[in-house]
Simulated scan of single mutants.
Amino acid sequence: MNTPTLTPTPPSASTPISAPTLIGIAQNGPVLHLRLNSSAQDDTLSAAVLDELIGVLDSLHERPDIRILVLSSMGDDFCLGADRREYQEALTLDPTGATLRRIADRAHRLCQALENTHAITIARLHGKVIGAGLALAAYCDLRAGADTCRFRMPEVGVGLAPAWGGAMGRLIAEAGAARIRELMLTCDVFDAGTALRLGLLHKVAPLDQLDDTVAAWTRPLARRSPEALVLTKRMLTGYAKAARTADIALLDSHLLTAQLIPHRGGD
């Protein structure tokens, strides 16, 4: 995978960014790069990874100097989705489902943090972008993907309703109810060209040109008025939320847990 060589620059604010161990992090001026899939983890979103991503995003409240966040991956794929093995282990250790609900609530908190951070967020996608990985990308403001990307929403195929991070409403808002309905029900794999037509990608490029494509966004964004960027992002987010007649995202953790806990019967 072709990734840019970053020279971290000293932060211009006094509040340091938390130092994660499961994700890569580097600052290049006003641009913060976060990379999934370090050598210490696989290609899924575990609870520990969610916590580290949330920690970084929370720290940005005190870092107005960081104006752009680029989310990418160091692995062969951007993300293969949620860690379903961790879900089963959580239920084995805590059959009440409380632990699993806490993991699912972290996913919702992460997606809300991406949506609400002042920084303009950019998803740099390559390889497979599956389930929760697609949900995570959908919450970024801008998305660029390699022309070899493959996308899938597999939840129905493994016996689950899509309930990760409250992403269904976001996906429908970005790509339209009819096509998201089809892709969720069929679990079909779709390519970068289809994602571009749906609005799930804004730009598609060959993998070796993907960094230049992202830089074509970050360079002008870094020159924009910080206040104008923040206000515009908040206006866009507000109008998007206002267009949703209902938001049941807070139920996602309960929906997920209810599906995985064996039914015990009773009156």
Rank of each mutant, 00 (worst) to 15 (best):
W164P: 00
D212C: 03
V156W: 03
T213V: 07
A178G: 07
S225P: 05
L198A: 04
A161I: 04
E174T: 13
R223K: 15
V158L: 03
L221G: 08
T218D: 07
C187E: 10
K233V: 03
G199E: 00
V214Y: 04
T218E: 03
E155W: 11
C187F: 04
A228S: 14
A178Y: 14
M184A: 09
Y239D: 11
G166W: 11
M235T: 11
A163T: 01
E182L: 09
V204S: 05
M153C: 02
Q209Y: 13
L236G: 01
A222N: 09
G159D: 04
A177T: 13
T186K: 07
K203P: 03
R234L: 01
P162W: 12
G166M: 05
D188I: 00
H202M: 09
A240Y: 02
L160R: 12
A195R: 00
K241I: 01
H202G: 11
L201F: 15
R179V: 05
F190Y: 13
A173Y: 04
R223D: 15
G165P: 09
A161M: 09
G238Y: 06
V189R: 06
A177W: 13
E182K: 11
R170Q: 14
A215I: 07
A163D: 04
K233M: 03
A228Q: 10
P226M: 00
C187N: 15
A167G: 07
R234T: 03
L183H: 00
D208H: 12
F190R: 02
C187G: 07
Q209D: 15
L210F: 10
L210K: 02
V156A: 03
